[in-house]
């Protein structure tokens, strides 16, 4: 079993969905990121999605755009992120998946990227603007060769044929974008979501994780009844934006994650 499979198996045994928080690497700076990752683990993360900042994030809303801008201004780039993950991998006992746009990978070279990503201990990669059609020639075989999971997106606009196509290439899990749109918090969730999730799960060989717009414990619970995993991104990124300079940022992030996972308050990390 891969670490991602283990994480889902453990959640299934505990009769709950996996909690998958997202933060942007390098926001507020890359030196702080490892402490924030530890806070996510301490708060109850089952799998972490780590964002790679890109100058032109067409699938992201304003909150994640600003996070990318801050990270780039702090000098963050893909190579540094992979080295950071490698240095801290041992202390982070959950699978980590990179959430990125394709151009930084293209610039590094797909093969070099796969080598460095595998060596750093990353578990998988979700490349938002690389659909299966464009991944098949080089990206998929190289990633497989290096033992990295390739996670693909599904959307409300995905046709039956597209779901089939994604089902053939997505490994680890599939990520359902719960509404058409960019990343960001939503107050209400689409009503047909549960039905759609059930339908998609029947067609997928791997667990289905739902994201884009989830921001409260109630939503996490609600979606968790249907999906095997729930992603919370912008709500945490917003906290980092607001508290980025606070010395107790990791403790605050951990508390926010605890609220979302419904875990009782344990020992605080990094508060003092």
């Amino acid at each position: 079993m891969t670490p991602i499979e283990e994480a889902f198996a453990r959640c299934a045994a505990e009769k709950r969905s996996a909690f998958v928080p997202f933060i942007m690497a390098g926001d507020p700076d890359l030196a702080t990121t490892p402490r924030l990752l530890e806070a996510l683990v301490a708060g109850g993360a089952d799998i972490i999605e780590l964002g790679v900042p890109f100058s032109d994030p067409i699938a992201d809303g304003p909150v994640n755009q600003r996070a990318a801008t801050r990270a780039l201004a702090a000098g963050t780039h893909l190579g540094e992120i992979l080295r950071m993950v490698a240095r801290h991998r041992d202390r982070l006992d959950v699978p980590i998946v990179l959430f990125t746009y394709f151009n930084p990978i293209h610039a590094l070279g797909i093969r070099r990227f796969a080598e460095q990503a595998a060596a750093s201990g990353l578990d998988g990669v979700l490349c938002v603007d690389l659909p299966p059609e464009e991944a098949e020639a080089e990206y998929l075989p190289v990633m497989r060769e290096h033992g990295l999971d390739t996670i693909f997106l599904l959307a409300p606009t995905s046709t039956k044929d597209r779901v089939k196509r994604v089902a053939q290439v997505t490994t680890g899990f599939a990520y359902y974008v719960s509404r058409t749109g960019v990343t960001g918090e939503q107050e209400t969730l689409p009503s047909e979501l549960r039905k759609t999730v059930k339908r998609l799960r029947r067609r997928l060989p791997v667990p289905l994780v739902v994201g884009f717009g989830v921001s409260s414990r109630e939503q996490v619970v609600e979606i968790g009844k249907a999906a095997q995993g729930v992603v919370v991104g912008s709500a945490l990124v917003r906290l980092i934006e607001e508290e980025g300079r606070a010395r107790d940022l990791p403790a605050k992030l951990e508390a926010a994650v605890r609220k979302l996972t419904g875990q009782p308050k344990g020992s605080e990390v990094g508060a003092q």
């Binding site: 659909p131 059609e133 959307a155 606009t157």
Partner: peptide, 12 residues
């Protein structure tokens, strides 16, 4: 060329 877009836009 090609078609490098998020899944939401592939079917449209």
């Amino acid at each position: 060329g090609g078609c490098f877009v998020p899944e939401t836009l592939m079917a449209p």
